[in-house]
Nucleic acid binder design. Structure first.
Lengths: 209, 209
DNA sequence: ATGATAACGAGACGTATTGTATCGTAATGC
DNA sequence: GCATTACGATACAATACGTCTCGTTATCAT
């Protein structure tokens, strides 16, 4: 009681600094909470997820959750971050790299229901700077493989020097983003070929068609 | 009391069919509610918006809101639909049409804070079929101008017959969608030129560069 | 062993929000 | 002027968040 209150509201993931004794936190419970969060996030979405529901499914008390995460949001973000990424491809060909990476990108997206979860979080971001900061590395890790593919292609001389590589990456992923967010659909792997062809060669009719 | 209850939960926007008498609904209150909803939607976002807050700002009672909309969601969607669209361009040139339309698209997006509101709604869509249905025409109205631009370009022979026009539209809008949703940024009108150039001519180095 | 310490599951609690219902009042039609 | 319906205000039950307190259990230091 004489202790000043912790005003650290952002990180309860580690036990208090003075704690080298006492019952250790259950790693099993920790993982069960993350698993349950992810399951419910997929099932009922961001706004439908309740901490009570997570606690019940994980078989833990609510306090066990709040001991680790200061609020619902960081819990969701951490569970979200557990989703696996996708492997990069380096075949020596821009077109092959793009098609294969985009295919894996989509497969990871659909297999993990990232497509159902990410929009929920993205929607909250504009009015929640903390969430925005937490979400940034996740978004970046999805973009970087494409940036690297284009950097390698530039070194090989496959693309012009004045092509904005970041923009090229966004152009390739763009139709998937549109399908997901604007149209509310599930991006199909069948989109990959046409997307890459169109992005690489352009929409205009070529003289040598 | 002997009356069967209305199970129509989706439309209270019109007075009950039997009502040709009594005090008419205040059109002033109606508009004040929509305005307040839109203001608050922009200020505090989807999850921060409360019906109580809308009632207070609009200077009406909560019942006046629930008399018109069955729940918070349809209210938000209707307020959202009040946002203005953007004018189409038909200059006879694909490149000019695209750049000018995309510029207006972005200006409308930013001026109306649609960019701050749409992601919130999009995120809920996956777990709310009703919202999905309500959101569809909004999304479609933003896409159709681009589809028409490409249809006219095809008639003029500017693009090949085998180009998927829907995909082309998504390709042009794609980087904006990526910026908005994945990166949480505000799309700048300065993106328009590079986007259209890259989408039209392709990422690959042309032989006649 | 034994005691100090902290996490554990369970659940009560205060606050806030949603959506319903009920006030007395005000506006419109017959 | 009377029936009818909307009005603003507010009380209400249900639900969720986040805090707190139970009695219990696991680990460390001695």
């Amino acid at each position: 009681m004489a202790q000043p209150e912790r005003d650290d509201k952002t990180d309860r993931s580690a036990p208090p600094p003075s704690a080298s004794t006492g019952r250790p936190r259950s790693e099993e419970a920790h993982q069960a909470i993350l698993d349950a969060t992810l399951e419910l996030l997929i099932e009922v979405g961001f706004s439908g997820l309740t901490v009570e529901g997570v606690a019940q499914r994980a078989g833990v008390g609510k306090a066990t959750i709040y001991r680790r995460w200061p609020s619902k949001l960081p819990l969701i973000v951490e569970a979200f971050g557990e989703l696996p990424g996708f492997e990069e491809v380096d075949s020596g060909s821009l077109e092959v790299d793009l098609k294969e990476t985009l295919k894996r990108y989509l497969e990871a997206f659909n297999a993990t229901s990232l497509g159902a979860v990410f929009p929920s979080l993205a929607g909250e971001r504009a009015h929640n700077p903390e969430l925005s900061k937490l979400l940034e590395p996740v978004a970046r890790s999805r973009r970087e493989p494409f940036v690297r593919i284009f950097e390698r292609a530039r070194e090989r001389g496959e693309i012009a020097d004045d092509v904005d590589i970041g923009l090229a990456a966004d152009l390739v992923v763009g139709p998937i983003s549109v399908t997901l967010f604007f149209r509310g659909g599930t991006p199909s792997p069948r989109m990959v070929g046409p997307i890459v062809d169109l992005a690489l060669h352009g929409i205009l009719r070529r003289r040598d068609d």
